[in-house]
Amino acid sequence: MGTPPPGHHPPDASGGPYGSPAGDAGAQGTPGVFAPQGYPQQVYGQPVFQPVVLPQIQLQPQQRQEAERPEGSGTQAIRGVLILAAVIGLVIVVIGVGFMIMSPDEYASPERTSLQRPGGVNQMAATVGPGGPGNPLAQADPDAPPPVPALPAAPPMQPSSPKRLIIPRLHVNAPIKSVGTDKSGAIETPPISNHNLVGWYRGGPTAGEVGPAIMLGHKDTQTRSAVFSRLHEMQYGDKIEVVRMDGTVAIFTVGGVEQAAKQTFPTNRVYGDADNAELRLITCGGTYNRTTGHYVDNVIVYAVMTGTRLAKAAS
């Protein structure tokens, strides 16, 4: 297998080595970019009305009689119209409330969509290959949901930036750097100058937060193997730990591993919404094409958070 030039990874159909995350700029705004707090509203004091002194006017006897005359039928008619309008307005409000009660879905605020797992069936191979360890990785059906482990998901935590990624099976203990997207909308790769560096897509959830946290790393450099060179060896049930800035550790359990062609990258399965705190690890894989200078596939690990603990205090 050849060695790609630094930072040079094969683009997929979306223009980048790891696909374009769902909800990039142009769809629903730029993910992960938090709008600043609203400008403070100006505080207006209560208006002060100055009394206006009008000059006294002497009324003639005939004018005084007209001023003291009781209200006529014209005033009563106006009052009746106002009362009728108020009653009609009340009826319209009641009818509107009735429509909302009878058709709640049409008036409800939009909710997040999630990838469904019909009948709880895991539609992807649970091991590193369709027939077990040692067999080639396979690409799942395009409509298959992300694979999940048998363990129940742990309750999600509040957002907190990730610091380190620990994978006991692969002897990985690597720092994490946040990355964004390039001009094509694909996720940036971490700097290849540091072979033991993992990139976290800051436009998505943090590890331990509801949704899929996306992390990626290089397979190799010009001179040596890199942090995710053995990612294809991950298996169903393996543990992954993410140390967070808030002093907690999110513990993930692998549900499955997939090797997908870059031209048919499973964008929805990787970046789509999830009901639990989940994790995706991505790197290059498959055959290295010397002519194009690209790997032809991506290796993707799917995991769900199944536990948490406090990080050990630094000695």
Rank of each mutant, 00 (worst) to 15 (best):
L115R: 14
Q76D: 10
I300N: 01
P61C: 01
V296H: 08
T308N: 10
V210M: 10
E241M: 04
G132K: 11
P266K: 04
I83C: 04
A140T: 05
T221V: 07
V301R: 03
L279T: 02
G26S: 05
G120K: 02
P162Q: 05
V296C: 03
D297L: 01
P51Y: 07
R202D: 08
Q116V: 15
Q158R: 13
G272R: 05
F228E: 02
V53M: 12
K219G: 08
Y44N: 14
G256Y: 08
E278F: 06
T253Q: 11
V172Y: 05
G29S: 05
V81A: 15
Y236N: 08
A261Q: 11
P21W: 09
I214L: 07
L281T: 00
L84K: 14
G7Y: 09
R79A: 13
D273Y: 10
A144C: 03
P162N: 05
G180Q: 11
F49D: 04
Q41K: 02
V254A: 00
V53K: 15
E209H: 09
G29C: 04
H232W: 04
Y39N: 04
V243W: 12
Q46F: 04
L115P: 14
P5A: 15
Q46A: 12
Q139L: 05
E278P: 03
F228Q: 00
V249R: 11
G208M: 10
A150Y: 02
L281W: 00
G96P: 00
V198I: 09
E68A: 11
G134E: 09
T306C: 12
L165K: 03
L59D: 07
T3F: 15
H9I: 02
R202P: 02
G96L: 07
V87S: 14
V270I: 11
S225C: 01
Q222P: 09
H218R: 08
R230D: 06
G119Y: 14
V52L: 15
H8L: 12
N298E: 00
R202H: 08
H232I: 03
F34L: 03
T75F: 14
A77P: 01
F99D: 12
N194M: 05
P212G: 10
I78V: 15
Q63V: 14
T181I: 13
D143R: 10
F99L: 14
V128L: 11
E278C: 10
K163I: 12
N194E: 13
Q56Y: 07
N276A: 13
S184G: 06
I166E: 11
M100K: 13
L84I: 13
I92S: 02
P70E: 09
A174G: 00
W200C: 06
D105Q: 12
R169P: 04
I192Q: 14
Q222S: 15
Q263W: 04
Q158I: 04
Q60I: 00
K239G: 01
T264G: 00
N268V: 08
R224Q: 15
V128K: 13
G7S: 11
A125F: 11
V243Q: 15
M102K: 15
Q139R: 07
G211Y: 07
S178A: 12
Q46R: 13
P31E: 08
G217D: 04
G15F: 06
I167L: 11
